[in-house]
């Protein structure tokens, strides 16, 4: 071990001697390359901005070659907007489809990214050989190819994925109806519940996530508080002393009523 360290120290001393004896000064040689490259970078960024502006019309959602100038203003009451992160988070976005709610989602959100980050940080301590020539580093080549391919595939899949998490949950609605023996008039509320952001915090029959201390709602109707109670609660939870859940007044009266019917009918699987 210490022989290896000595070898590395010796190689670095040799590096410093070589650079001193045969190197070239940073200015003007390397600085010339750096300056040209920097000008290219600034030009590319400016060109992207110009293309973005010139090809997009000045109306919200009118898309140009590089997308819209701005979308419609944020509306917390929207029930079916498909959330989309910036492209460099697509891989994470798609990992969430591989690892499903709720049991294994943590592998996608925390597990895989944490392991990847740990490996990156530990790389100089895992690879202790002095060899730098790529063809003599087979493990490094394979790891690099696997990383690039998997990130590329995940990013591509994330970019082309169409359905939102909400519409995935909608597929579970018929199952809910059967297991919970929901009446016909509760189905509209069930669909709305699945499409809206409810499952981001609540669990319903194994779908969704428990966030911010939100309770599971599978048997919420067993309390027999009535449709009206749930309607008012969802519209403004703060009135009932709940400061954590956001108000959903924006859904509108009819939607709130449907949600109320659905929650009241949810009395647990028979």
């Amino acid at each position: 071990m210490s022989r290896r360290l000595d070898e590395r120290r010796e190689a670095y001393q040799r590096y410093k001697r070589d650079v001193n004896e045969r190197g070239k000064p940073f200015y003007p040689y390397a600085m010339f390359h750096d300056t040209v490259m920097s000008l290219v970078v600034v030009s590319v960024i400016a060109a992207l901005a110009v293309i973005w502006k010139l090809t997009a019309e000045e109306e919200p959602d009118a898309s140009g070659a590089l997308g819209v100038l701005y979308g419609e203003e944020a509306d917390p009451g929207t029930t079916n907007f498909i959330p989309r992160p910036d492209w460099y988070f697509y891989f994470l976005f798609y990992l969430l489809r591989i690892f499903k709610w709720p049991d294994s989602v943590i592998l996608g959100t925390v597990g895989v990214p944490t392991i990847a980050l740990m490996l990156l940080l530990a790389l100089p301590f895992i690879d202790l050989r002095r060899e730098r020539k790529l063809l003599r580093r087979p493990v490094a080549i394979v790891a690099a190819i696997l990383t690039v391919v998997s990130m590329g595939v995940l990013t591509y899949k994330g970019a082309t994925a169409r359905e939102s998490l909400g519409t995935e949950a909608v597929l579970a609605v018929p199952e809910w109806v059967e297991q919970q023996q929901l009446p016909q008039e509760a189905e509209a509320g069930a669909r709305l519940f699945a499409e809206s952001s409810c499952l981001n915090c609540h669990i319903y029959l194994g779908s969704g996530a428990a966030n911010l201390g939100a309770p599971e709602l599978t048997e919420i109707g067993a309390s027999n508080k009535g449709v009206d109670y749930f309607r008012q609660y969802v519209a403004n939870p703060a009135k009932f002393g709940n400061q954590r859940m956001p108000p959903f007044q924006g859904l509108g009266d009819e939607n709130l009523r449907n949600i109320g019917i659905f929650l009241d009918a949810s009395k647990g699987p028979k």
Binding site: Y70, A74, P83, R84, P85, D86, F89, L165, N200
Partner: peptide, 15 residues
């Protein structure tokens, strides 16, 4: 603060 911004952040915070 447009729709994309808002809903992507909703998901991001929940993640």
């Amino acid at each position: 603060w447009d729709q994309t911004a808002y809903w992507a952040t909703v998901v991001g915070i929940n993640l």
